[in-house]
Design a protein around this nucleic acid. Sequence first.
DNA 1: TTACACCTCGGTATCCGGAA
DNA 2: TTCCGGATACCGAGGTGTAA
Length: 302
Amino acid sequence: MLKNVDLKHLSCFLSAVESSSFSHAALIQDLSQPSLSTRIRQLEQAVGATLFHRHGRGVEPTPAARTLYERINPLVAQLQTALVEASAIDSMYQGEVVVGIVPTVAGRLSVKLAAGARKKMKVRVVESFSGHLQEWLLQGDIDIAVCTAMPRRRGITQTLIRAEPLQLVGPADSGPTRNEVRFRSLQEVPLILGSPQHAIRQILDQTARRLGVTLRVQHEVDNLEAQLRFVRQGLGYAILSEGALTGTPQSNELRMCRIIEPQIQRHLVVATYPKNEAAKPAVKSVAAQIARLLRTGNRNRC
DNA sequence: TTACACCTCGGTATCCGGAA
DNA sequence: TTCCGGATACCGAGGTGTAA
């Protein structure tokens, strides 16, 4: 019976009841008066009842129209709200989002992130160290940083994902025979560490100063792949976070020993800059997705 | 893939009826 | 009689379905 009746018909009807005038209703609905009149006539044909008494000075809703109005008014309002909400949600999954990731996490996160991106959303991944990522975030070059927790900086929001114990990484056939190594013992082995700006290096330097330990830094190498190559060639030991080797080739050629006394950790965070979030609604959803992926990955390993 | 026919929608111009 | 507002006629634009 209600064939060919759509939201436009109902909106016109509601406006006509409220204004008691087709002309005023047409203005409200941004239509010409004849067009609105046609809509009302189609609705009357569909309902099978007269909804308005026409007279020389406007129209008057019939009892049938008043009953219909009471029933559909809240439904149309709900429907219009739902449409607005759906449109807002859709805009959250559009556009390009640039994510900066520290190398020790990039390997395990990048592919999952790209695979999980929505159709209308493009996720671009760049790799660098925590210090660089902080600067890029503030400059607006990237939208999200997945990095080691940084000192509080104005405007940056950090969400802690997890604490990752640091481990000594050496060739599988050498190094300490136990699965744990004391921090003080690190002064006895040649180390391959990142430059002093590197977040893990800063954690190590800070702990060493506190304990009065002098670290033997044999090579300063910022690139993760290069560090691992140095280690495989027996040039020294790297110190990396748990999970850093996940997904890297030849990880079975390497051996990891957890550092204890004290156990040192790096805190992995997802950092965003609220100004970027306001400009790109998609940033919030991607940041949430990253947090979910990293936390899930953590559970899987355990 | 393109061209054509058909349909729907919304516009303007005009007519008509009723109230002041 | 005048003015206001709804109804009707007609036209153009755009979308859709179908056949070549």
